[in-house]
Amino acid sequence: MIPVFDGHNDFLQRLVAPGADPAAIWAEGDGSGHIDLPRLRAGGMFGGFFALWAPSPAGTDGIDWKARQENPPYAVPLDQPIPTGPATEHMLRLAGQLAALERSGTLTICRSVADIETARDQGRIAAILHMEGAEGVADPDVLHLWHTLGLRSLGPVWSRANAHGHGVPFAFPGDPDTGPGLSDQGKALIAECDRLRIMVDLAHLNAKGIEDVARISGAPLVSTHSGAHAVAPSTRNLTDAQLQMIAATGGVVGLNFAAGFVRPDGRRLPFDGFDPYLRHLDHLLTHLGEDGVALGSDFDGALMPNDLADAAALPRLVEAMRAHGYDTPLLEKICWRNWLSLLSRTWQR
């Protein structure tokens, strides 16, 4: 079994749901979602990026947007900005749950590649603390506090605006060139992330924001969970011009598994087999090279296809890539080596 290191999951949200039993969900699994310790081990996933994300208030327009996404074209309005205080409180709850998993002895919050390798060798899940949408960062001092808590990866925005910049809406077909770039506060955030060696994630950021990050940051450009816009023209996917920008820095793109973002028809519906993934991977490899492509599942945050229902099914994807002609050295790069190489160059530790 080729091991997997994953670019993005939203597992922590399940642990703070009303009535949840976090210890049981993690250690035993409750049959819901995509990730728990038994399924990670069954699928060969030894670690990944665990996201802190603050949900928007429930919509009031009465439209079932998930149903609308089943039959494109669609254009979901951006969520409204949310206050920093409640967002920070929610993210601290999530971080607390990750710390509790670390205390259980089954997981390590990793601050270096050496930490990742040690966790893997000792049979613990290697977790990177990632913030998806920087509503939890009110100012640079708070960013330093998060860094002390273990934060090593940050996406300035989710798909809504905040004090730092603008996200892309969920639309198909659509162009990610929507709205202005980073605010002055957002530009300062990127510069401070560089100083702290916090990886900056371009996923969910609009085109002008990505251009701003490219101008400010000296680190490799990264999108943890995206696809190729040329294969599926979702606003959440990266154009060839953006892929070329990432490639020029020696950066990495993790392929998002979300059905609605990888299907060429954009329909938010499950599918059989792995052909959409292989089409995206081929395109990403063409533009990024073998050292620039990885996996970014979006487990517990997106609709999965029928043959990749959860983390335990990851060997099926690996075998589909092998049958497609990817040899073992390339599979290892895509499945885990490229993430560790990228983090080593970004964190410099």
Score class of each variant (00 low, 15 high):
167 G>R: 03
167 G>D: 05
167 G>K: 03
168 V>D: 05
168 V>G: 02
169 P>C: 05
169 P>K: 05
169 P>L: 04
170 F>N: 12
170 F>L: 13
170 F>P: 00
171 A>G: 01
171 A>N: 01
171 A>D: 02
171 A>M: 06
171 A>P: 01
171 A>Y: 01
171 A>Q: 14
174 G>R: 01
174 G>Y: 04
174 G>E: 09
175 D>N: 14
175 D>L: 03
175 D>S: 08
176 P>R: 09
177 D>Q: 06
177 D>T: 01
177 D>P: 00
177 D>N: 14
178 T>Q: 15
178 T>R: 13
178 T>S: 07
178 T>W: 11
179 G>Y: 02
179 G>E: 07
179 G>V: 01
181 G>C: 03
181 G>E: 02
181 G>A: 05
182 L>T: 02
182 L>A: 01
185 Q>W: 04
185 Q>F: 12
186 G>K: 06
186 G>N: 07
186 G>D: 02
186 G>Q: 04
187 K>T: 02
188 A>H: 05
188 A>D: 13
188 A>K: 11
189 L>T: 10
190 I>L: 12
190 I>G: 10
190 I>H: 10
190 I>P: 06
191 A>N: 05
191 A>Q: 11
192 E>F: 03
192 E>M: 02
193 C>D: 11
193 C>P: 06
193 C>L: 08
194 D>H: 06
194 D>S: 13
194 D>E: 14
194 D>M: 13
195 R>Q: 15
195 R>W: 07
196 L>R: 11
197 R>D: 12
197 R>F: 04
197 R>Q: 14
198 I>Y: 11
198 I>K: 11
199 M>K: 06
199 M>V: 14
201 D>G: 07
201 D>E: 12
202 L>G: 13
203 A>N: 09
203 A>C: 14
204 H>R: 12
204 H>E: 12
205 L>D: 08
205 L>S: 12
205 L>G: 03
205 L>Q: 11
206 N>Y: 07
206 N>D: 05
207 A>N: 07
207 A>E: 12
208 K>I: 00
208 K>Y: 02
208 K>A: 15
208 K>H: 14
209 G>L: 00
209 G>P: 04
210 I>P: 00
210 I>W: 09
210 I>Q: 11
210 I>E: 06
210 I>L: 15
211 E>H: 13
211 E>M: 05
211 E>Q: 15
211 E>S: 13
212 D>W: 01
212 D>E: 09
213 V>S: 13
214 A>Y: 10
214 A>W: 12
215 R>L: 14
215 R>A: 15
216 I>Y: 04
217 S>L: 08
217 S>M: 10
217 S>I: 07
217 S>P: 09
218 G>E: 05
219 A>H: 07
220 P>D: 13
220 P>G: 10
221 L>W: 02
221 L>T: 00
221 L>I: 00
222 V>K: 03
222 V>S: 09
222 V>D: 04
223 S>R: 02
223 S>G: 15
223 S>V: 05
224 T>Q: 09
224 T>I: 07
225 H>V: 10
225 H>C: 11
225 H>Y: 14
225 H>S: 09
225 H>N: 04
226 S>N: 15
226 S>F: 07
226 S>L: 11
227 G>I: 09
227 G>F: 03
228 A>S: 15
229 H>A: 10
229 H>W: 15
229 H>T: 06
230 A>W: 00
230 A>L: 10
230 A>P: 01
230 A>R: 01
231 V>F: 00
231 V>D: 00
